[in-house]
Design a protein around this nucleic acid. Sequence first.
DNA 1: GTGAAAGCGCTAACAA
DNA 2: TTGTTAGCGCTTTCAC
Lengths: 341, 341
Amino acid sequence: MNIRHIAKQAGVSVATVSRVLNHPENVAPKTREKIEKIIAETEYTPNWFARGLNFNKTGTIGLMIPHILNSVHMEIAKGVEDVAHQKEYIALMCNVENDAAKEKRYLDQLIKRRVDGIIFICSSLEAEDFQLVQEQKIPVVLIGEHKNNPGLHMVSIDCQQASKKAIKHLLDSGHEKIAMLYGTDPRVENEYKIAGYKKALKEADLPFARDYLREVENSIEGGYLGAKKLAEMKEPPRAIFASSDYIAFGAMDAIRDKGLSIPEDMAVMGFDNVRMSNLVEPKLTTVEVPFHKMGVYGARLLFDIIEGEEEENAEPKTILLQSKLKIRKSSGHKERIGEMF
Amino acid sequence: MNIRHIAKQAGVSVATVSRVLNHPENVAPKTREKIEKIIAETEYTPNWFARGLNFNKTGTIGLMIPHILNSVHMEIAKGVEDVAHQKEYIALMCNVENDAAKEKRYLDQLIKRRVDGIIFICSSLEAEDFQLVQEQKIPVVLIGEHKNNPGLHMVSIDCQQASKKAIKHLLDSGHEKIAMLYGTDPRVENEYKIAGYKKALKEADLPFARDYLREVENSIEGGYLGAKKLAEMKEPPRAIFASSDYIAFGAMDAIRDKGLSIPEDMAVMGFDNVRMSNLVEPKLTTVEVPFHKMGVYGARLLFDIIEGEEEENAEPKTILLQSKLKIRKSSGHKERIGEMF
DNA sequence: GTGAAAGCGCTAACAA
DNA sequence: TTGTTAGCGCTTTCAC
């Protein structure tokens, strides 16, 4: 079933059928109606490829997701999908699994498929990989920091400041021996978080203890193992700051397994404010990150470029959104321990 | 940059270039090497649309996901993506949000884009909607039950039996007043779970109390609200069976908020065994469902059809995978309460 | 307002 | 082994 079938049935030329499909205003109402009727009856849909061959537009954007089992990334993805779907675009979600090689493979695919734009969530690609995309003139937006910002539009939060605020809160709550468990990913964000951690300690004139800073897998398991190690130290910390809520969940589990109580023996602070963070016991103090909003803003930015709202070679924009401390039980305020719990 | 550029540069015809792209064995090694070199240098990639126009194959499958923020669905999706990626296919993930209209819109898109196959996770489409797909000869696999199985390949678990086993366990643990909180979705699965619940009660000669069976939103919030209502009854149940872990999490929160303890005052049993279920306090007894495997099996089945391994009009297959009871603290064994906790 | 025909970039049948 | 060319289904320019 193709455009010629329709044309023949309607007794017109293919050009006319094509016109009612693309510029109906240029067709006499009568002929148009007749053709529209036949199109509806036969459930004819123009061939996607033939169309693409002419237009070179796909109505598709690519979306690189570090890991689709991580709810944090999916919240961003949801934000992107929300605006894409509203714009009648479809988002090709690529599950990158924090694997640069896999991300590269997917990138090649996306370029091959001539997507109209690409959004990278916490990309692990090299700056030079983005050149490829630039050469193809495919608009790109980064969500989450990139190691050496390759001059691209970006939306993120200020991780260093957020982390500093978090540590400050622990300090204000009377903790001094504060350890940090940071995940192997997202790498750049976590570096900023580490910087914030160090900075906060410094500003409080507290020494930075190398042993209190540990890299773990960004997962519940990673948090468990990391916290276990910390708890077994000769001089264990009295508070743990985790670079993600999942790490914090694992840490809490380990602390409990060690027979310690939270926050009395060891306080815990997370990062992300995932849905479960106020369902664990005790509820987790954490940093709320506007993931969905990040996705929405990122997508809007991308579509602005695609639709030409944004000038071709405009200075790359960086949108920084606000994070917010969510104070709950797990961080245990010194003066109020006993009163609150 | 197109095939003609390459041909000219290599001093050959487009056909030869096309050959090294598709049937390199039919090209003299020397010419082939020369052309390959030029292709590499110029980073030429054949136009996706022109290719599709000839092959009518896209290397793309569609994947309908009820809700991308639900980790359960994403685990299935991950299974699908794993095999798709390995087969060098790309999966177009559609976030359907349990909205039949949105699912229909996405379905139209997928058909338009000539995907090579579609996998539906817990679809809310009508049987007649699948006719569309059948007409287009697009292979389809269902993951999760469908209301009136429209004669399609399917992979699922036996929800009724799983639910029955779950209730049996609660009965064996000494509970008699057992309520059930079931989510509005996935609809068909939950009907089976309800049937299992009723059957187990019947076999134990216990009456079925209409007020103990409540429909709630399939979410933490839904579980909270539902359990709150149950706890406020004149004769509240002593155990709650939830159709999903998320509902169970909400229920646990509500029970705690009522000042009751789990499982002593009220036992809780979930369904799904999501990662967090052994991280809440107390750890949640639940039914382990092999989601990832479901995705893998579904995808394999789909590719068997796409690649013609499966006969065109073979009898639709139904693959039923095994679920398993995960007994943890929250369901509280009567005789062992006090000893265990 | 409509039709004829060129062309989008590629593949494959046929010819050489 | 390689080249010529028709054709995939559509859009659009140019005539009429």
